[in-house]
Simulated assay, not measured.
Amino acid sequence: MSMFSGVSVITEGKHCTTSVVNARTDSGYHLLVVKDYSRTVQEIPNGEQIISGAFMVGGHQWCIYYSPNGVNPSSADFISLYICLCGDDDEVEEVAEEKAKFELSFVDQVEYQKPMHIRATETYSFSSKGDLHGCSQFMKRDALERSAHLKDDCFTMRCDIMVCKDPNTGDAVGTLSDVHLHFDHLLHNKVGADVTFEVNGETFAAHRCVLAARSKVFMAQLFGPMMESNTSSVIHIKDMEAKVFAALLKFIYTDSFPEMDKDNNMEEGGQDEKKEEEAEYVMWLQDLFVAADRYELQRLKVLCEGHLAQDLSVSSVASTLALAEQH
């Protein structure tokens, strides 16, 4: 369980005061309250940041870096957020290579703050005070200013940190539930799989009981009145991309929001390729939202709604509006 490690409050555009609670466990969270948000945008230029006070998680001190106008020229339209180890140089030097998982989210985005979600995030190495990890393009400022996260020119970020026990494997503290990892392994190794789906030319092996336990639609299809007459036959899923069904299965087994499979060539491409990738991601989100509605996965629908709202743009607003009205 994550322990509360205190709160840092930014006021008057640049001053930050911190009240600290020592989170003695290997998992804890800290709140960063940004008051006078518009003033921070006016007074802190691109490339500069406001740093929170030090807070303790897992026996080490951490800091949050907030850049209201982005940390570099390519993120000038975004807010940037990073975390790092802080404290005396001697303290940091003793930790040759501390490994930790973390999540930066708005305080109301509870789906990102669950231990199982943080366990599934990437493990990062923190070896010095200058070793920052985070997101240069956390959220576009205009999107933040239109969102419900900003109220009375104020928003609150939550930083969850999970210090890893085993520096070789990146495994986090053993007291946290890892049932989602077991089910993810079950999905991939296919042991005991008793149903096969064909989606757009690709086949997926799964477990009837898992699907039925998570979705009323799958329950009816696999065990109820809608049950296939020949239980050994392949079930064909129409009107759905294979990568969308794969993401749907990932959520069903792990209860974590899935990531879209990306083309490495597109990630390394230029501006046009990046725009194409962004458009593809929004389309994938929309298709996943439709799939969640189709199989009555209400939590996945809510997660998709949040991502669609965050990535809303002129090019996607019409299709997103149509999707909202239809579903």
Rank of each mutant, 00 (worst) to 15 (best):
D166C: 07
N168T: 14
N168L: 14
T169Y: 04
T169P: 07
T169C: 08
T169R: 00
G170N: 02
D171F: 09
A172P: 01
A172H: 01
A172M: 05
T175W: 14
T175N: 11
L176T: 11
L176A: 09
S177V: 10
V179F: 14
V179C: 10
L181C: 10
F183S: 05
H185P: 00
L186S: 11
L186N: 09
L186V: 14
L187A: 03
H188D: 13
N189F: 08
K190V: 08
K190R: 06
K190Q: 14
V191D: 15
V191A: 14
G192T: 08
A193G: 05
A193H: 04
D194L: 04
V195L: 05
F197L: 05
E198P: 06
E198T: 11
V199W: 02
V199Q: 06
V199P: 06
V199K: 04
N200L: 07
N200K: 01
G201D: 09
G201W: 08
E202L: 13
F204M: 02
A205F: 07
A205Y: 02
A206N: 06
H207V: 01
R208V: 05
C209S: 13
V210H: 02
V210T: 11
A212R: 07
A212C: 12
A212Y: 10
S215D: 14
S215V: 13
S215R: 01
V217G: 02
V217Q: 04
A220R: 06
Q221N: 07
L222Y: 08
L222Q: 06
L222E: 13
G224Y: 12
G224C: 12
S229W: 05
S229L: 11
S229H: 03
N230I: 08
N230L: 01
T231N: 05
T231I: 14
S232N: 09
S232C: 07
S233V: 03
S233N: 06
V234G: 00
I235F: 01
I235C: 01
I235S: 07
H236Y: 09
H236R: 10
K238Y: 06
K238L: 12
K238N: 13
K238A: 14
D239R: 02
D239S: 03
E241W: 00
E241F: 02
A242I: 10
A242F: 00
A242M: 06
